[in-house]
């Protein structure tokens, strides 16, 4: 067997293995999608695996007519967008000086930052502090406490450190200050890390559950994940409440499945657009800490 054929064979095996792996990972997702598109009775009987049975869009039509879903989607999209812009801005502002050797207190600051990764604030003092800052039942509680993540900050600092000094030296000779250097030289050259960390921040913002449950009282400000939990409760606690939906083709489980997909789809759609930066950025940040 020639080495070319051998390579091709190995490639085929690798692709097949990866395809099987991808399929295994897709099965639970397909199951939820099929459940959302199936008739309630078939779902009750546990007949759904990968394909829908007696397909119907009834659950989706129910979800689309639900004002609460749209309101929560708007809140989640807005807080995610503002949160990501805010986080990237503040993280780069903090990471840049920390990447500079001449910044004398950088090391002490780094120790303090790492300290927050190891020792987290206990729940009650944390709750009291945020409440005293006026963040209780405020939409800003979904944004401000997540402004800077220590982990992301370290990745960005490492990335900045790896940028060649010559880039900045030229700018320095031209008379650039630190802010100008950050915004004109460093950030335009950091698209990969910004895209990666933007995605990290976005996913964390999108999925946040603890802050809303602790601090958001008004149901009109519920983000998507909290509303979803509430909808799921309605189906899981059925031992306590006799919910009878007999005349409809959807039921609690199909609606729940549709709601899960509804809450997941927007953030999933972001991935393909930044994938090319993502791999590069994640690798770069992880070279040294």
């Amino acid at each position: 067997m020639s080495s070319k054929t051998q390579d091709r064979l190995i490639d085929i095996i690798i692709y097949m293995f990866l395809a099987i792996l991808a399929f295994i990972m897709l099965v639970p997702l397909l199951n939820v999608v099929s459940t959302s598109l199936s008739h309630g009775t078939a779902v009750d009987r546990g007949e759904i695996y990968i394909f829908p049975i007696e397909p119907t869009l009834a659950s989706w039509s129910y979800i689309f007519k639900e004002n609460r879903m749209w309101r929560s989607l708007f809140i989640t999209i807005s807080t995610t967008f503002i949160g990501v812009v805010n986080s990237l801005f503040l993280t780069s502002l903090t990471a840049y000086p920390l990447a500079k050797k001449e910044f004398k207190i950088g090391k002490v600051m780094m120790v303090t930052i790492v300290f927050t990764m190891i020792f987290r604030a206990p729940m009650i003092p944390y709750f009291l502090t945020l409440r005293s800052l006026g963040l209780y039942d405020s939409i800003f509680v979904l944004i401000l406490p997540h402004a800077i993540s220590a982990y992301n900050l370290i990745i960005m600092r490492t990335f900045f450190k790896q940028l060649p000094d010559e880039l900045e030296e030229a700018a320095k000779i031209e008379g650039c200050g630190y802010f100008q250097m950050l915004f004109r030289i460093v950030i335009p050259n950091s698209k990969a890390v910004l895209a990666t960390l933007g995605l990290f921040y976005a996913v964390a913002q999108w999925n946040q559950f603890l802050h809303p449950i602790l601090f958001i009282k008004s149901s009109k400000m519920f983000p998507l994940q909290l509303l979803l939990r509430q909808m799921v409760d309605g189906t899981e606690e059925i031992d306590m409440v006799d919910i009878v939906m007999t005349t409809m083709v959807y039921n609690e489980q199909t609606v729940k499945a549709a709601a899960v997909i509804f809450a997941m789809l927007p953030i999933m759609m972001v991935y393909p657009f930044i994938q090319r930066y993502f791999v590069k950025g994640a690798m770069l940040g992880s070279v040294k800490g």
Partner: peptide, 13 residues
């Protein structure tokens, strides 16, 4: 208020 229940866990949180 509508506090999610989650088997009582979310309520206690």
């Amino acid at each position: 208020p509508a506090i999610p229940w989650n088997g009582g866990e979310a309520y206690l949180q």
